[in-house]
Design a protein around this nucleic acid. Structure first.
Lengths: 193, 193
DNA sequence: TATTTATTTCGAAAACAATCGAATTAAATA
DNA sequence: TATTTAATTCGATTGTTTTCGAAATAAATA
């Protein structure tokens, strides 16, 4: 099942107003209500096209129609327009737009690029952002709430990549591992377990 | 020369935000700045497509880029977004949208439909709105600031359509012509000259 | 200096949207 | 009831937009 974004109304609103003729329709109806025929004459497009545009505006509640004799008289729902415009400014609107997206997708892509199929680190990235992701991956091989000897640390790192001392230094300077001043013990500091 | 609407910025704004992926980009950048690669991974679309979308957002000043090493780091121009959203609500925004449109286009179309090539009234509309337009057309054949005898009135109307008494009555009841109680004089009341 | 890397630009394919005129529907008048 | 009228729906066409992968660009590293 496809995860559907929470922001459909917002997108529909922008789509509805992202056409020059529809924007003009809203502008005209803001002045006074009007029939399809009249709008078509002023916009110089066919009545069927106006009808199509009005149905899009009507779908999101921005205009409504009233029958009067032969005519369908359309009017702008001013309150609705104001409500929608206001909600653009609301704090909670933008966060909803990104619901359903996975912020870890980039980290996963980096791991995929730098790890061998067996989980070893095939190549060490020079780039800072990417190195950070790889260091986080190494850190996960360490448990919280215990200490490791340097020999144990080297064994864990060495199973992943031959550049043991370089990676050990990086892990400490990036604060993934803590270390006794005399080098007698190491322990895991941060990461997500 | 094509008359250009005054509302280009408004239309560009809506167009820019009328795509689901661009809306998500804005949502992501609202949380934190990010590189093209990172955005592409999270949205699960190609980097070139992200680049294309960012250039559209950047054209209207909604995002900006900063170079950092290999990366172009994009950030949301929060102030600009707020400014644009605010201007949607501004009084003067909607009227600008309809600038350059001719509100008399509908009247002209009605005249075209009901007048013969020589200017005579080929057919009298039953519809109220349309009849009004035709009456306005007849009224223009009368001068302001003088009176007409019934004979003169009949001659002017008769040159346009044989239903003289019907049209004369309509002109008076729609207040295009004034009339002495005893019917001895008629004069033009409203219209645009 | 040659190579690697992220981004942008380009060109083509596919998806989408606007538009028109004709056919249909619904409502008013003759 | 048949006709006229305005609006909507339909089908086809045209134009625009999104998207991708490949090629070009620009910037950092080896």
């Amino acid at each position: 099942m496809k995860i559907k974004s929470q922001s459909e109304p917002l997108l529909s609103f922008f789509k509805a107003l992202s056409d020059a003729n529809r924007l003009k329709l809203v502008g005209l109806l803001a002045q006074k209500e009007a029939s399809v025929e009249e709008l078509a004459a002023v916009l110089e497009i066919s009545a069927s096209t106006v009808s199509h545009h009005l149905s899009i505006l009507s779908d999101i509640g921005l205009v409504s129609a009233r029958v009067d004799g032969y005519y369908n008289i359309y009017r702008l729902e001013t309150d609705e327009l104001e409500r929608m415009a206001q909600s653009l400014l609301a704090q909670e609107t933008l966060p909803e737009v990104v619901e359903g997206l996975d912020p870890k997708a980039y980290d996963r892509k980096i791991l995929k690029d730098y790890l061998a199929p067996d989980g070893a680190i095939a190549k060490i990235p020079t780039n800072h952002r990417k190195l950070e992701v790889i260091l986080g991956y190494i850190a996960e091989k360490f448990e919280f709430n215990r200490t490791y000897t340097e020999k144990e640390v080297n064994a864990i790192i060495g199973a992943l990549n031959p550049d043991i001392s370089g990676l050990r230094r990086d892990l400490i300077s990036a604060k993934y591992l803590g270390r006794e001043k005399d080098g007698s013990a190491y322990w895991r500091v941060k990461g997500e377990g």
